[in-house]
Amino acid sequence: MKHSHDYPLKARPMIGLEDEYAAGFVDPGHSHEHAQFLYASSGVMSVVTPDSSFVIPPQRALWLPAGTMHEVSCRGAVSLRTLYIDPVHDIDPGHCRVLEVSDFLKALVLEVVKFPAEYDLDGREGRIVWLLLDEIRRMPGAPYHVPMPSDPRLARVCRAIIANPADQRDIDAWSSQIGMSRRTFTRAVRQELGMGFALWRQQVRLMQAVSLLAAGRSITSVAFDVGYESPSAFTAMFHRAFGEPPSAYVSR
C-alpha cells in the first residue's frame, strides 16, 4: 500500500491515489504525516486503531487524523481510492470518523485521484479539490466502529473476534486462552470497553453484517458468516439493534 510520505503535497491541500488489493491483503500498523480519507469504491476494509475497530463498506469512508496508527485489511478484493490531506484541513482533530459517501462525493473522489501530483491549484483541478473538501466536511457520520482495549491480552481476543465474528468460543474459553480467570476477564472487559463481552461481540457481528449487506451479500449467507445459527435469529437481532429488519436496510 502506498503511503503519504511517497507523495509530498507540494503546497497542495490534498493528493489522491488509487490502487487495487487482493482479498486477504493486510497493511500492518503505520501512520501518515497527513490526514487520510480512506475509501474503497468497491470491497470492504477493516481498519484497526489503538482505540477502535472500523468496518468500511463502499458507501462509507474513514477519516484518519494525521499521525493515527492504524492497520488496514481487505476482507475481499478492494478498489482503494484514498486522499492524503494537509492536516490544517482536519475536519475533527484527534478523532477518527466514519463518514457517509454520497454519489456526488464519490464522483469527486474518483475525479481527484486521477489528478497529477502537481495539479493546477488555480484552475479547474484546484476548484474541484476545494469543493471536495467542502463536501467531506458536510457528510454525516455513521456508526461503523467498536471500541478496542488497551490491555494487550484483551486486544488479542478482540482482534481474533473481529477477524472471525462467527467464532463461538465463550468467556471461559477466551479467558483461559489468555491466562485470566473468568472474573478478571469479565471485569477487565467492562472496564476497558464500557460494556459486557456478549454485547461487544454482538456489536462486532452487527457491524460486519451491515458491511456485508452493503456489499450485496444475501441475508442468509451474512447470518451464518457472522455467527448466527439461523437467518431468523439474525433478523431478530438486527431488528432489535437497528429498528428495522435487514431486508428493509438492503432495500433502503
Rank of each mutant, 00 (worst) to 15 (best):
Q202I: 00
F197R: 01
H32A: 03
L199H: 05
V88D: 07
Y228D: 08
H70T: 11
V72G: 03
V189M: 11
Q191P: 00
P65V: 08
M180Q: 09
G29Y: 11
D86L: 01
A214V: 02
Y249R: 09
Q203N: 14
R153F: 08
D92H: 15
G24H: 10
T235S: 14
P165F: 09
L99S: 07
G76V: 07
A241W: 07
S247L: 04
R252N: 12
E125D: 10
D90H: 06
K2P: 03
V101A: 10
P246L: 08
Q36W: 06
S251T: 09
A117Q: 14
S73E: 06
R81K: 12
D167G: 02
V146G: 05
D19W: 01
I85P: 07
D122F: 12
L193I: 02
A209W: 12
R187I: 09
L17A: 06
I85M: 06
V157G: 01
I219W: 00
G194Y: 10
I161L: 15
S176E: 14
L213S: 03
V112A: 10
T220G: 05
P13A: 11
S150F: 05
L9M: 07
W63R: 03
M207P: 04
A155C: 10
D92P: 07
D172E: 14
T68N: 00
V26I: 15
H239G: 01
K10W: 07
A22D: 13
P50F: 08
S232K: 10
F54Q: 06
L62Y: 05
A22N: 10
A209N: 04
D90G: 01
R156V: 01
D19E: 11
G196Q: 11
V98G: 05
V78E: 01
L17H: 08
R240T: 09
G126C: 08
S52A: 07
P149N: 12
S4F: 04
M237A: 14
D27L: 08
H30W: 07
E125G: 03
R190S: 14
V109A: 07
A198K: 12
V48I: 11
A173E: 15
G94M: 01
A11K: 12
R124N: 01
A166F: 02
L131E: 15
Q36T: 10
L110Q: 13
K2Q: 06
A11I: 08
